[in-house]
Design a protein around this nucleic acid. Sequence first.
DNA 1: CTCCCTATTTACTCCGACATATTCCGCCAG
DNA 2: CTGGCGGAATATGTCGGAGTAAATAGGGAG
Lengths: 273, 273
Amino acid sequence: MTQRQFPDKSRKGKAMESAADSAAPDSVAAEERDSPARGPGRRLHGAIAHKLGTAILSGQYQPGDILSGEVAFAEELKVSRSAYREAIQVLTAKGLVASRPKAGTRVLERDRWNLLDPEVLAWAFAGEPDLQFVRDLFELRAVVEPAAARLAAQRRDKADLKAIRDALSAMRRHTLTNDAGRAADRDFHDAVLRASHNAALMVLSASIGAAVHWTTRFKQRSRELPRNPIPDHARVYDAIAEGDGEAASQAMGVLVQLALEDTASAIEAAVNR
Amino acid sequence: MTQRQFPDKSRKGKAMESAADSAAPDSVAAEERDSPARGPGRRLHGAIAHKLGTAILSGQYQPGDILSGEVAFAEELKVSRSAYREAIQVLTAKGLVASRPKAGTRVLERDRWNLLDPEVLAWAFAGEPDLQFVRDLFELRAVVEPAAARLAAQRRDKADLKAIRDALSAMRRHTLTNDAGRAADRDFHDAVLRASHNAALMVLSASIGAAVHWTTRFKQRSRELPRNPIPDHARVYDAIAEGDGEAASQAMGVLVQLALEDTASAIEAAVNR
DNA sequence: CTCCCTATTTACTCCGACATATTCCGCCAG
DNA sequence: CTGGCGGAATATGTCGGAGTAAATAGGGAG
């Protein structure tokens, strides 16, 4: 049965609804813009990439799997081949898939995936996150952030200190129980990474920030935060301001360790529930 | 009444020849560096992405710059808009550019770039590499690799040890003066990262490996390698095999430090030349 | 002077056809 | 029967054009 026989004008209707139907019951923070639905500012191929990306990250497509052919899949998604292809190019750029003529588009091995890409990270946390991967991310933080704090203590200038101080005071104002407070927390860590004046570490900041953002949703979901994190953060700032690299590294290490424990217990609680 | 007249077959001619040879005298002389030219296995949109990516990374387009419109630029490059657009999607996925209707496609700020993406890294090293960025990458190595070695010492299994051992013996066979030896060196570091059993660190392995690969070209270019790296590498292996995390971390730290010194002196020599 | 509204520009999407590169399979030789 | 080889099938890649949606700029009304 031919789905489209003649190029009549009736295709004006487009296929918006097909991308919007996958409404997840999650939707905790409505202010977030990461819904798979295609709104203004969110292009169609971006929505397709999001859909396929989350499907791959969630294991719906396993490495080695071959996706249906372009024409078939594009038709199934109710989009044109161009839009589908552009989405595939995005996934290819992030190392998730690879396409070859005649052979089709196949999902690559997990170690080829660009897991630190912020968008891939968002896809990974769109569904139920992999606990092992969360642990890995915290280990990465535990390695990178203290070192960044040490460098920051050696290289920070006045603007860096002001950025960190501003983030700290914002944290004091809002506390971690609301979105503004969490944004300030992320700003704090971002400012420290930035003060290291190392481009490679700054790039990791985006990834780490995303990881922090997604994991804090867990902490918030499970229970209230018993600990007051301000003093720990202030210690990091003081050490950086004084130029004491060793102390900054130590303080930041404590910070990450505490965050790890909080998240670990939150995850534990979520699992045992 | 259909909206398009008739698909006439008169446009058979295509424009293959214009993109391949007859285009301009720039065919061979100008940019043969890493073959942005399009060979078998290399897709056209990939070549375009490479061309634009290197142009951006080399500073030919500055952050904030607006690229010419789709039609104009695609025509200038002698490719169809589809190919051009797919290339732009790749750059967008890597955070290099962003497109909006009416506003055009503009180059994003440097801190939005996904500098740890292997392909972006390759583009960054396609031209004359930024010395500051090379230093940043070595600092990242100095942070990540010792920590990875420590984890590897705690978590390695027999397969991991065998992989490291194999890479080590391959290094012994070939030495670092040829390609096979450098590949073995990369395999060694990759195997250690892999033995950490941490997905996030493994992803960095690809980036770090690429960085090592590109920087070794400098070392090789400037002069012979005076140091025999085998004992240092062997020390790392021994510590990992014995499960001594502290020693593994130490040994790996020494390794990275030596590589940094070698590269630094090589760069110095290249600059003073 | 501000605000809304329109007009234009630009990217976005769709379409159908042609080109190219692999893979698959049958053929032939050893 | 096994192995390499060449043609046909097929899916991705590329093309050019038409039409849609969105965002900015500029003009008009309050």
